[in-house]
C-alpha cells in the first residue's frame, strides 16, 4: 500500500509543522477539502479499472452542481435527485460512445467533456443559483470528532469498496486485468463497462453537488480542475492506467495526499506556487517508484 505510506509520511510532516496539533477543526477541514476529490477520484477509479479513462468527470461535476443550485429554490429533494440523475445520464452517454460505438475512451470523453462543459455554461453562464444555508451548515457540521464530511468520506469509500466486492466488481477487475480472458470466462463485458461509466458519472455528480453546497453557489466551471486531478488521485492511490489494479481505500489516500499538500505548503510557509510542482513530482515519482520496484523484483526472480 504505497498510497497509505505516502499519505502517512505527508501527514506526519504536516503534524510536525503544526507543532503536533491536530484539532477537530483540522479534521473537518481536511475532509471537507478532500471529499469532492475523493468522490470524483473514486469515479475515475471505476473507469480506469476497465482500461479506460474519463476526461468528462470534471464538467459532470459542474453540470450537477449548477443544476442543483438552480433547482434548490424549487425543492431540496428534487435538486439532489436531479443532480444525481444528471450524473447517471452523463455516464450513460459516455458508456454509449465507448461500449456501443466503440470509440476510444480518451477521445469519446474528450468530446463529451466539451459537451458537458457547454451544458453547464448554457444552464448557468456565470456563478449563481441558490443553496439553502441550512444544508451548507449541516453538511459541514456534525459532532467535533465525527463531522459530517468525515462520515461522507467514509460512506463513499465503504460503498465503493462494497461494490468492488460484488460479482460486478470482480467482473470489472477481470476486464482490466485481461479482457480476452474475462470474455472467454463468461464475463458480460459490455454490461460491466456500462456500469463503470454510470457509477463514475454518479460519483462525479456527488462531488459536484458537495462542492456547490459547500461553497453555497453553483459554478459552471468549478469542475475543470478535477478533470486531471481525478486521474492523479486514482493513480496516486495505486490504480494502474492499464486497468485491473487498485482499491477504493487507495484512491481515498490519493485524494487525501493531494489535499494535504496544500496545507503542508501553508504551514511550511512556502508559497502556494510550489503546489503544482510538488503534485507533479509526487505523481511521477509514485508511478516511477512502482515501475522501479517491478523491475527490481523481476531481476530478483530471474536470479532465484
Amino acid at each position: 500500500m504505497g498510497a497509505v505510506v505516502t499519505y502517512v509520511i505527508l501527514f506526519g510532516i504536516d503534524l510536525v509543522l503544526k507543532g503536533g496539533n491536530f484539532s477537530a477543526f483540522d479534521l473537518r477541514t481536511l475532509c471537507m477539502n478532500a471529499l469532492p476529490l475523493a468522490c470524483v477520484g473514486l469515479g475515475q477509479y471505476f473507469v480506469l479499472l476497465t482500461n479506460g479513462i474519463d476526461l468528462s468527470l470534471g464538467p459532470v461535476m459542474s453540470v450537477a452542481g449548477s443544476i442543483a443550485a438552480l433547482c434548490f429554490s424549487w425543492s431540496w429533494f428534487a435538486a439532489l435527485a436531479i443532480a444525481a440523475g444528471t450524473g447517471l445520464l452523463a455516464g450513460m452517454a459516455n458508456a454509449l460512445l465507448v461500449v456501443r460505438l466503440r470509440l476510444p475512451s480518451i477521445l469519446a470523453t474528450l468530446a463529451t467533456m466539451s459537451i458537458f462543459q457547454g451544458i453547464a455554461l448554457v444552464l448557468l453562464p456565470s456563478p449563481g443559483g441558490t443553496v439553502p444555508a441550512a444544508l451548507t451548515a449541516f453538511l459541514s457540521g456534525g459532532p467535533a470528532l465525527l463531522p459530517i464530511p468525515l462520515l461522507l468520506v467514509l460512506a463513499v469509500t465503504w460503498m465503493t469498496s462494497w461494490i468492488m466486492s460484488t460479482p460486478f466488481g470482480l467482473d470489472l477487475r477481470a476486464i482490466g486485468g485481461d479482457e480476452p480472458a474475462a470474455r472467454s470466462s463468461g464475463v458480460r463485458i459490455q454490461l460491466a463497462i456500462f456500469g463503470a461509466y454510470m457509477i463514475a458519472g454518479v460519483l462525479a455528480a456527488f462531488g459536484g453537488l458537495y462542492l456547490a453546497i459547500a461553497t453555497a453557489i453553483g459554478s459552471p466551471t468549478i469542475g475543470n480542475d478535477f478533470i486531471l486531478l481525478s486521474v492523479a488521485a486514482a493513480i496516486l492511490g495505486g490504480v494502474s492506467i492499464g486497468g485491473g489494479k487498485g482499491a477504493p481505500l487507495g484512491v481515498l489516500m490519493g485524494a487525501l495526499t493531494l489535499t494535504i499538500i496544500g496545507q503542508l505548503l501553508y504551514f511550511a510557509e512556502l508559497s502556494s506556487y510550489y503546489q503544482s510542482l510538488i503534485n507533479g513530482l509526487i505523481l511521477i515519482g509514485v508511478v516511477a517508484i512502482g515501475t522501479g520496484r517491478r523491475v527490481v523484483s523481476g531481476l530478483l526472480r530471474e536470479r532465484a
Binding site: I53, I106, Y273, L277, L283, I284, V287, A288, T291
Partner: peptide
C-alpha cells in the same frame, strides 16, 4: 519518463504539466 521509466504517457505528461506550472509560477512569482 515514457520510454525508459515506462510511465504511461497520460500520467507522465500530466505530471509534467504540473511540474511546468509550478516552475513557471515560481519563476514569475505569479
Amino acid at each position: 519518463g515514457v520510454a525508459k521509466l515506462r510511465i504511461s504517457p497520460i500520467i507522465m505528461t500530466l505530471g509534467m504539466n504540473n511540474v511546468m506550472e509550478g516552475l513557471t509560477m515560481i519563476y514569475s512569482q505569479g
